[in-house]
């Protein structure tokens, strides 16, 4: 169950992209809190600002206005070097197209973020354990091309978990998967949230996936609705 502790506090953030001479508002004064243990799903039509919001929350981009606070510290305009360290230590990412390094095995891909903080010897057992947890105990040494889409996404989930992040961000993680693989991946998210109290923020288009979340954030034209 989620607690009342705010991991992330977002206040009135706006983001406008410039396309040539045209200013395109992607987010308009969005505010929200993400609590410890939340499983939040961000939903909305294409162009509603879901991915833009996730990128601001995940410190992959900076809003033009408003503030973002992580564990009580304002991170909105922090230098890229510090944001990079926060991303490494406190945030986990799962991308739609898995984003695994093709030349590294499943276990090496999972270990990669941890190798920035500790030795290979120290993080390898944890990487193996995470892969076992997502059901890939017999595919530790497989290269991404030897894995199915669902399995690759599970490797990406394990990679997102390796540094014990405060929040996991998933940008349409099931968009490229068939329904069986999608359910499989979502059950992993559900298990992580319920059994391990992991905080997850996920974007989806699929209505049947909304039931996995404890909170829904709906966006339309860059605003919360």
């Amino acid at each position: 169950m989620p607690t009342d502790r705010h991991i992330i506090e977002v206040r009135n953030i706006s983001k406008t992209y410039k396309l040539g001479d045209v200013q395109v508002p992607a987010l308009r004064e969005v505010s929200l809190d993400i609590n410890d243990g939340d499983f939040i799903i961000i939903t909305g039509r294409n162009g509603s600002g879901k991915s833009t919001l996730l990128r601001q929350l995940g410190l992959l981009d900076k809003p033009n206005e408003g503030t973002i606070t992580l564990n009580g510290h304002e991170v909105t305009r922090m230098a890229e070097k510090k944001r990079s360290l926060i991303r490494l230590k406190h945030l986990g990412y799962i991308f739609q197209e898995y984003a695994l390094i093709a030349e590294l095995s499943a276990v090496e891909n999972v270990m990669l973020p941890a190798m920035m903080l500790e030795t290979t010897k120290a993080c390898k057992p944890r990487a193996q354990e995470l892969l076992e947890k997502v059901g890939l105990h017999n595919k530790l040494k497989y290269l991404p091309r030897q894995l199915s889409g669902g399995e690759q996404q599970k490797v990406a989930i394990a990679r997102a978990l390796i540094n014990k992040p405060d929040v996991i961000f998933a940008d349409e993680p099931t968009a490229n998967l068939d329904s069986i693989a999608a359910r499989d991946v979502l059950s992993v998210f559900k298990k992580l949230n319920e059994s391990e109290h992991r905080t997850i923020v996920m974007i989806t288009h699929e209505q049947d996936e909304i039931s996995y979340a404890n909170r829904i954030i709906k966006l339309a034209d860059g605003k919360r609705v």
């Binding site: 990079s84 926060i86 991303r87 984003a99 390094i101 990669l112 973020p113 920035m116 990679r159």
Partner: peptide, 16 residues
């Protein structure tokens, strides 16, 4: 480029 972007996104230091 995309692979490098992902490495950066997950926090891998640019000098590495």
């Amino acid at each position: 480029r995309k692979q490098i972007g992902i490495l950066r996104a997950i926090g891998i230091k640019p000098y590495l």
